[in-house]
Amino acid sequence: MAWWEVLVQQTINGLTRGAVFALIALGYTMVYGIIELINFAHGDVFMLGLFVSLAWFTLLGATQTLTGWQLVTVLPLVFLLTMLTTAVLNVAIDRAAYRPLRRSTRLAPLITAIGVSFMLENVALLWKGPAPIAYPDVFPSVDILREWFGVDSAIFVTTKDLLVVGATIPLMLALHYFVSRTTWGKAMRATAQDRETAEAMGINVERTILMTFFIGGALAGAAGLIQGMYYNIGQWWMGYQAGLRAFTAAVLGGIGNMAGAALGGFFIGFLSAWSDQYISARWTNAIVFAILILVLVFRPHGLMGERTPEKV
């Protein structure tokens, strides 16, 4: 491979990774925007999303590569079911673990979130065991350049890459529409900006928080499903690393800022892919955390340059 082919390949790789980080980062940033909680359990909801999606494929008897009409029936159905499951799970976590602490210090729910994270990881450990789980190759993988365009290139772009982009972008657009145009989306932004005044507008703040956890959970579930179909592997601790990277993405974009979280996710995606290639995969986590610390120290409002971050 020529040097530029490696660069292009790693950039495509970074784009697909980044899409997953971005979906997870949105959940972090939305929850932070509305209740100022860094939900450490969020990465684990993503991890469970992968296993839950596998369970739905299995239940529907679709563990072979999907073909033809299955791609437009089974696949959207599994997206829906997975997102619904993790959305309800995320709401349940809030109700059981965070809501009782709503009026306590900020430290209490934060520590609880770490506890919830351990709990979810151990649930996965009991459910699936410690070894990596093979995720069936449900999505057909076609070498696009070679088979569709007849180009003989060292660069490898598959239909799976299209899937990642094709699923992530519509989800983000839908979220953007919801938050900027709908009444409840506006209620969410209002609650994030000034909770007491939002209440005084007649907004049911608890319902708004519920909605935020629901949406964040749904996006994490979609990310888990995408991750499974793309990499064909899952393991109980994978939410930890993905969660920390997505959290870094959210901080980079200015925590509470939704557009920032999406961009931050793609940025961390590119960065980690390039770092794996040009430095060493062993250094990637260290580099991501160095960035996290640098941003927290020098630009605590994120790289988007706003003094007051656009929350939610």
């Binding site: 009444t183 932004r189 900006q193």
Partner: peptide, 18 residues
């Protein structure tokens, strides 16, 4: 207590939320 990052129109709409 204006919602600072929402437009004037959105602020007014929120007044009618309930």
């Amino acid at each position: 207590r204006i919602f600072p990052r929402m437009t004037v129109l959105e602020n007014l709409e929120l007044g009618a939320f309930a």
